[in-house]
Design a protein around this nucleic acid. Sequence first.
DNA 1: ACCAGCGGGACATCCCGTTGCT
DNA 2: AGCAACGGGATGTCCCGCTGGT
Lengths: 199, 199, 199, 199
Amino acid sequence: MAKIDAARRAAIGRAKRARTRAQILEAAAMLLTERPVALTVDAIVQAAGVAKGTFYYHFQGLDDLSAALGATLGASFDDLLTSDRLDLPDAVARLSFAFTQFLEKAISDPLWARLMIQSSKDPAGFARGIRAHLRDDLANAIEEGGLIVQDVELAADIVIGIWLQVVRGSLERRTASDLPAQALRAVLRAVGAAQPRAE
Amino acid sequence: MAKIDAARRAAIGRAKRARTRAQILEAAAMLLTERPVALTVDAIVQAAGVAKGTFYYHFQGLDDLSAALGATLGASFDDLLTSDRLDLPDAVARLSFAFTQFLEKAISDPLWARLMIQSSKDPAGFARGIRAHLRDDLANAIEEGGLIVQDVELAADIVIGIWLQVVRGSLERRTASDLPAQALRAVLRAVGAAQPRAE
Amino acid sequence: MAKIDAARRAAIGRAKRARTRAQILEAAAMLLTERPVALTVDAIVQAAGVAKGTFYYHFQGLDDLSAALGATLGASFDDLLTSDRLDLPDAVARLSFAFTQFLEKAISDPLWARLMIQSSKDPAGFARGIRAHLRDDLANAIEEGGLIVQDVELAADIVIGIWLQVVRGSLERRTASDLPAQALRAVLRAVGAAQPRAE
Amino acid sequence: MAKIDAARRAAIGRAKRARTRAQILEAAAMLLTERPVALTVDAIVQAAGVAKGTFYYHFQGLDDLSAALGATLGASFDDLLTSDRLDLPDAVARLSFAFTQFLEKAISDPLWARLMIQSSKDPAGFARGIRAHLRDDLANAIEEGGLIVQDVELAADIVIGIWLQVVRGSLERRTASDLPAQALRAVLRAVGAAQPRAE
DNA sequence: ACCAGCGGGACATCCCGTTGCT
DNA sequence: AGCAACGGGATGTCCCGCTGGT
């Protein structure tokens, strides 16, 4: 019985722990989308409705929390880029698929969009992983002779640059319903890719 | 004689004032390009070699200094976009000229580039003026039937997005010597403009 | 059990909190009685033996502390003007009772006296409440036909003025043992009240 | 001629000096009447329209300025208590004359009134001189057997207390036209003096 | 006699990370 | 797992008094 109690208690504890952690992460994400102030622990714990000690029980500090936020974002990529993407015939199609997925996600989830923009400023963050994937697709596309731009880094900057700024625009203005399609066509023209038949 | 005294005194004061003010502004600009997030008064006055009181004699506070930095950047635009730009035949040519000027300036002056990137985050700052100019050129180009993209805001986002990200890339990597030309061609393709004959 | 935990925790927290809060308030009150003009946070926390952060944990700032000090003073009035004052037969007797109580309290507790004098400068503070009570008694006395002075505000100024200055005098000089009685008689003569039979 | 020049210049200089000094004093007095802030040199020089160096040319510092302000106030007493006061027959009449003069001055010159109130907090200031004069009159009145109150200090506190508070009241409220007369009668009753036949 | 500019330091405020308790 | 309270320190702001110049 003591054993059962301990096990149940542990399970409950784990669940509670996860819930509080999520509360803190959510509060931090919420605050990151608001205008000016640098994220402060005090603000986070107040927004999350927990005590300071609780924050430091779950995270080492602000850096740790930022890393955790990044991991949360990273996990969302798996949802966006499901394995069936790999079945696509060529690199340009994969790139188009990913670009569209990311843009639609950003438009439908402004909070996620703001976090992505915030994170784009740190080249050492998880944005590196995205860029690496993008570079692979672009390198393949260049090998397949499908691009005018021959410099992989320049091509990546073009794709990322358009994505970031279009997302910023979508946060500030009402967006046309076909914005993702328009933006994608502009990207493909920019890197000099033949238009994909179907998106 | 009193008049001369006042005039001379003012002139001397202005010279001294301008020198110290410039020192502070320069130090602040220098610090803005370095990693850490927040510009602090202590760091600025230490870098500028002046006392805190001197900082507050010249500026109301950090906000005022930011505004002054913005004004300094704004003044640099006049140097880049001289009046002879207006002699260019069509809107696409003017846009190409401005894009190339800005990109070459960013590559040759990394500090200026970093300031521009920092400032791009604040949509209410002087970046608005640049965007307004850009929008004018794009609207004209669309009227002249020279663009595929028909949405001025989207076209502006594309141009600015490529510019910002290419500049970021140039700060982190060695850039090819023909980067401005390549980037310009990508921009023109992206918005669907006919290539200009001469750059 | 969770309930008990929360209750006990709150009780313990309250006790600790109240102790430290009282320390800070006491230190601030002590400092207010000393010469220099301005109450500073540094001086308060040093006198109270706590850290600056602790001060700002308990109070929003200096203004908040001033308000708290005022509330402390206000609470002391309840001790002075107990409900049995209301049993007194007429307004002049009630006024005499309150005046004497306040004056004896001031003489026996110089720190309290200094705080009262300090606070008298702010007409918007809690001194307003005292004045309101005094005005009530005086208005009643005038209605009962017991005063020569017919203007309530003037009468209040006379009573308060004598009280404040006599208290100031008692802080600077040795006071005669029958000072409260003498002062009270002067006040009653000033407003033109018949002498009360018993004080 | 050089001599004449020097003399004239000195005369002009003295005049200018006096004018600037007066400007500073006036600005300081003006600021003292405004609500909360402690008098600061910066505020004074800005209000006076002179430079900081000028302030320190005329005054040693804030303490010196306060002393000068006190002297200015003191000088105003000579205007109020002209020598013909000494011709009055008895001490009570002299006291009544002075009280009325001071009160009428305060009502007609609120700035002067505020300065007096401010200064009353410092027992070492020029208020001491006034109190000394008052004590003389009161002591004489007691000797002449004209007062009920036998303690000179207490009598002085009563007179000063009523004066200060009535003046405070006149600054905050509209005052009845016969306020000085009413207040004087209250004072005389308070100290137990026979009413003077003529004021 | 007056001024512009500056150095140095005091102060209020904010915020991070720790501690002891449950 | 969570909380209330606290210590310590960094930062923005203000302001005094001095300096060199005319």
